[in-house]
Nucleic acid binder design. Structure first.
Lengths: 204, 204
DNA sequence: AAGGAATGGTACCGATCGGTCCCCAGGGGA
DNA sequence: TCCCCTGGGGACCGATCGGTACCATTCCTT
């Protein structure tokens, strides 16, 4: 029974924070929702901010595990997995009660870039970027280093846009851009050279 | 002296809301910052939420006017103006005290998609999308209807990413993607057909 | 069976939240 | 001159904020 209170607090806080926002949810709400006493709460967490950080850290691990598992479940060859990212994203956006990326939301609410919350968000996005880059490497892309942040920008754009539009269409839109991005070398001048090579019969 | 209190309230609120977040700023702070009495505040605005809406509406008009003026100031031909969007965006991100898009931030803080704040945000983004589409039409793009939301997704991605990265590099990254997007027809199957046409000597 | 750590409940703390009400000074129009 | 509107200042409201202290209970360990 010892650690159960902790888990219940984290579960309730994760849901409430995501649904209503961090500042909008008082400690009282978390306590009643999780049926935990006030003293027990502060026995487990030094402050509300500390709880926020722990919630985000747990969400980070869960979300990345979900993304990894979802993409692997597609069973597509490695070359197509970077594009599959956006199919998984579409599934996520279609999930019930989607209200944006919990990390972007937390970063915006925190407002202070020195806040420990901001640090957790940066760490999360860096980890996701790493994963995207791994997919690109496995897909045999030599330009993985420049391509990964570009795909991340598309992902973040889709995450934010879908909140405003209230649909998951932004994921397919981002996927379309990504497919185009992956269809040719990342530098447009390379593309010109390639097309020229085709026309001139491969002359160098 | 009559309307001055109103303007001072809007100015102070705009700055405080953007810097620290809407929920984080109490009415008291706005009053002391603008040197306006409490009663006078509620004589001008029905509530804090009403103030938020008016602040956002004013910011919407100012920001779009700035964007329009900045792009026109470049003096580039119409065909290159869609790309110039991202140069202007880079300027904006480099501005002092950048802390993200005020509208995205407000939407996230509001949390409720039925909120009047959410409505103002949607209206703002729709207006910007219209402007982007106008640029595309002026540039002679026939696929302006699908291209405009795609460029918007890139813009939103850059706006959010730059907060996390703390630099304006995301704008040039988005610009690179946009240039690629504009370099070929928006449907990748069209690109394939076009390349085939080159190889087969234009056979249909 | 005894001890002790962890629990849920609650009273309480000072501070701040958004909002209402009253007072008085100033200043322009009748 | 009088009047009235808008101005700022501030007392005050109930509610809630994050956080502390104390309580009796419960459950596990020894």
């Amino acid at each position: 029974m010892a650690v159960q209170a902790r888990e219940r607090l984290l579960d309730a806080a994760e849901k409430l924070f995501y649904d209503q926002g961090i500042r909008a949810v008082g400690v009282e709400r978390i306590l009643t929702e999780s049926a935990v006493g006030r003293a027990s709460f502060y026995r487990h967490f030094a402050s509300k901010d500390a709880l926020v950080v722990e919630v985000l850290t747990r969400t980070d691990q869960r979300w990345r595990a979900w993304l990894r598992a979802t993409i692997e479940s597609y069973g597509v060859p490695a070359a197509e997995r970077p594009v599959a990212l956006f199919d998984a994203l579409g599934e996520w956006l279609d999930g019930a009660g989607y209200r944006g990326c919990a990390f972007i939301n937390a970063m915006i609410e925190a407002a202070d870039s020195d806040s420990p919350i901001h640090g957790v968000v940066v760490a999360h996005k860096d980890a996701v970027t790493d994963y995207v880059q791994q997919l690109l490497v496995a897909a045999g892309r030599e330009d993985h280093a420049t391509l990964a942040p570009e795909l991340m920008l598309l992902i973040e754009g889709a995450l934010v846009t879908s909140v405003r539009e209230g649909s998951s269409e932004a994921a397919t839109r981002a996927g379309r851009i990504a497919r185009m991005l992956l269809a040719r070398p990342s530098d447009p001048r390379d593309a010109v050279r390639r097309r020229l090579r085709v026309v001139t019969g491969g002359m160098r």
